[in-house]
Simulated scan of single mutants.
Amino acid sequence: MTDKTSRVAIVTGASRGIGAAVAERLAGDGFTVVINYSASAGPAEALVREIEAKGGRALAAKTDVSDADAMRGMFDTAERAFGGVDVLVNNAGIMKLAKIADSDDALFDQQIAVNLKGSFNGMREAARRLRDGGRIVNFSTSVVGTKLETYSVYAATKAAVETMTAILSKELRGRNITVNAVAPGPVTTELFLNGKSPELVERMAKMNPMERLGTPEDIASVVAFLVGPDGGWINGQVLRANGGMV
Rank of each mutant, 00 (worst) to 15 (best):
I18Y: 04
I18W: 09
I18C: 00
I18L: 08
A20P: 02
A21R: 07
V22N: 00
A23H: 07
A23N: 01
A23W: 06
E24P: 00
R25D: 05
R25V: 05
A27Q: 04
A27M: 06
A27H: 04
G30R: 13
F31A: 03
F31P: 08
T32V: 10
T32K: 11
V33Y: 03
I35S: 07
I35C: 04
Y37W: 05
Y37S: 03
S38E: 12
A39P: 00
A39G: 10
S40F: 00
S40A: 03
A41S: 07
A41D: 15
G42F: 03
P43S: 03
V48R: 05
V48M: 08
V48E: 06
V48L: 08
R49L: 09
R49P: 01
E50A: 13
E50P: 00
E50W: 01
E50T: 15
I51L: 12
E52C: 06
E52W: 03
K54A: 11
G55E: 04
G55W: 13
R57G: 01
A58G: 09
A58C: 09
L59E: 03
L59V: 02
A60I: 07
A60K: 03
A61D: 10
K62P: 03
K62S: 06
D64T: 12
D64N: 14
S66N: 04
S66K: 04
A68W: 02
A68D: 06
D69Y: 00
A70W: 01
M71I: 13
M71E: 06
R72I: 00
R72A: 10
G73Y: 05
G73D: 06
M74H: 01
M74L: 12
T77S: 02
A78K: 07
A81H: 12
F82D: 03
G84W: 10
G84E: 09
V85F: 07
D86V: 01
V87D: 02
L88Y: 08
N90C: 13
N90A: 15
A92S: 08
G93T: 09
I94E: 07
I94Q: 04
I94N: 03
M95A: 13
L97S: 10
A98K: 11
K99A: 14
I100G: 06
A101Y: 01
A101V: 15
A101Q: 11
D102C: 11
D102G: 10
S103K: 12
D104G: 08
D105H: 12
D105R: 13
A106S: 11
L107A: 06
L107Q: 05
F108M: 07
Q110T: 14
Q111R: 10
